[in-house]
Design a protein around this nucleic acid. Structure first.
Lengths: 342, 342
DNA sequence: ACGTGTACCACAAACGTTTTCATACTTCCG
DNA sequence: CGGAAGTATGAAAACGTTTGTGGTACACGT
């Protein structure tokens, strides 16, 4: 049985008593097998098993000074872009001594800060995915616990990044090759690093090719955000649209087809639009037509973040933290059905 | 500053020394204000603030015997059905003393068991959403920590449930009214409680109305599972299809339109199908045509689960646990575009 | 002047581990 | 045979809190 008759859990001393040894020996039998006699060890293990002994994590944390928990904060669990990230991190830690706390900020900066503060008390490390908080705030958090950043750079902590450049370049080249010369960018949240990056490379690529770019938004980075965006795009005189992410692209697509605007332009029919998204969310390949989008190696990103965190935790914080290394993973364009000649 | 010059965090004794009182007084000033003089309290609080004092959770947990964490285990984070559930639970606990651990079992029973075991060491309570583990396993877990079940019944713990009956009844009545007499059910995972419930009420409803029901599957409860299902449905001689959930319904819809099968049947064109889903996932209202589906009050369910857990935790486990109360929330049919006359 | 009550606070024990230090017993070698 | 080196174990301190017990100081009534 796992619990004593009185409902209380077995302690290390109970095991020790049953095995006829001291508590220290039990502890050693469990944590440093080479320090105890093989026979005693066997006996101790058997007794521990018989009592259903489970070390008390709080007591361990107290003496060891580490919780063996890591935190993971993402802007929105419901956003399918983050699902593979979350799963990647969880998969990495699944068979380690660490457990992971996951929280969702609802895309809200204040919530993000509160959550980070609350979590920093209960974890050894915190993985912040696309955080929106200010740089100084970030430094404050980083002073309390070790952190790893995903899709955000800061001197305060190491980061793993998506390199939007290649995907963006390919997207612009593709659209240019199809003859488009006047395009729109549907912006995401203004304080989002991803948004700034995407806009930057998009602007650079367009400028280099003589494409005129108008920026609309910002829009809520959700499906419904795309509805408003679609209507505003139609009021502009553009032939191709880059959306902040797949969700708004999908929203745009839905609204456009509902309004009878062909995607992409149908030869002969006036007023069609080409559309490119970002993220390659699962749903993106399942629409009619399937969405042309820039794919991100999100699972790889997650693994890199988890591995970086794990490494930092393992080296036991020797003196000054190592100069933040930044992994950077390339994106690429997936040409599907929503882009076509002007 | 939040950390001492040597990097170590301020302890309660440091605060006590600075304020010229004992550690106990500091503790009481923080936890039981009415027991200490207002003036001393003010001074203590100021000193605590000045040192950036944060109580050590491990030490608190050790002496209090509670972690002030709760765990939440769901089958699949990426499944949009669970997103509102997760958010609901998180929202409930956001401004309480509790933090929530979230984990994802990847729809795998073994992982679910491992996760539950691992979590039970670190939390005061565990919310299990649609668990697949066996009843005896469930009892084992329940003996280690207090648990609340969502969408699963067991004598071992209280549960919050969705009442599929009304939604199912409405769906069958709707389809019957449209003239359908031979339908298919696309089954989900065999060991899933939701699947059993849905099938049961569906079978009952059909039998009561003289509708012939063929069961296909089980299918993977995902979008891609719907592809295979669609092909198999077309090999059957049915006019309406009930899918295990929206994801597979969406997959079916996508595959069907790709194969040129009208949804719902077009008068004059042979071989069309009516389609009804389950869950009312966000995407369901955004397809063409939008999906007729049975909506679940998932957020309400989450709130109920969180509240039940909170209550159980608050009453401090007096003797035997109270007889499992089970909240039950009604579902209902949303008639949209994928169902029509035969 | 003396108990009685009250308000405030300090002391110390306790929570369940890990780890340092000391000790007892072996073994080995000169 | 004596001591050094090694092996296996136990006692006790430490981690940072909370809380029960007790003591001091003061006000009050007699």
């Amino acid at each position: 049985m796992s619990t004593a008759p009185d409902g209380s859990r077995a302690t290390i001393r109970a095991v020790a008593r049953l095995a006829g040894v001291s508590a220290s020996t039990v502890s050693r039998a469990l944590n440093a097998p080479e320090l105890v006699n093989a026979e005693t060890r066997r006996r101790v293990l058997e007794c521990a098993d018989r009592l259903g002994y489970q070390p008390n994590r709080a007591a361990q944390s107290l003496v060891l000074g580490r919780t063996r928990n890591v935190g993971l904060i993402v802007p929105d669990i419901a956003n399918p872009f983050y699902a593979p990230f979350i799963k990647g991190v969880e998969a990495h830690f699944r068979d380690t001594e660490y457990a992971v706390f996951l929280a969702d900020t609802d895309e809200d900066t204040a919530t993000e800060v509160r959550l980070a503060e609350a979590m920093s008390e209960r974890v050894d490390g915190l993985i912040l995915c696309a955080p929106r908080m200010s740089g100084t705030r970030l430094r404050t958090v980083a002073s309390k616990t070790t952190i790893v950043l995903a899709n955000r750079v800061s001197r305060a902590a190491p980061s793993v990044l998506l390199d939007f450049r290649p995907g963006m370049e390919q997207a612009v080249a593709h659209v240019h090759a199809l003859g488009h010369r006047r395009c729109a960018y549907l912006a995401g949240p203004a304080n989002s690093w991803s948004n700034r990056q995407r806009r930057r490379y998009l602007a650079a690529g367009c400028a280099a090719r003589g494409i005129e770019l108008v920026e609309l938004g910002p829009y809520e980075p959700r499906f419904t955000g795309g509805f408003r965006a679609a209507d505003e795009v139609l009021a502009q005189d553009v032939t191709a649209v880059f959306a902040y992410n797949d969700l708004v692209a999908l929203g745009v697509l839905s609204r456009l087809t509902a309004r009878g605007v062909p995607v992409p332009a149908r030869p002969g029919t006036p007023g069609g639009l080409s559309l490119v998204g970002f993220d390659d969310v699962p749903m993106a390949s399942m629409t009619h037509p399937p969405l042309t989008t820039v794919a991100m190696p999100v699972t790889a990103l997650a693994r890199a973040a988890a591995a970086a965190m794990h490494a930092m935790l393992a080296e036991g914080a020797p003196g000054a933290p190592p100069p933040p290394p930044a992994a950077e993973l390339a994106t690429r364009l997936l040409i599907r059905g929503t882009t076509g000649p002007i």
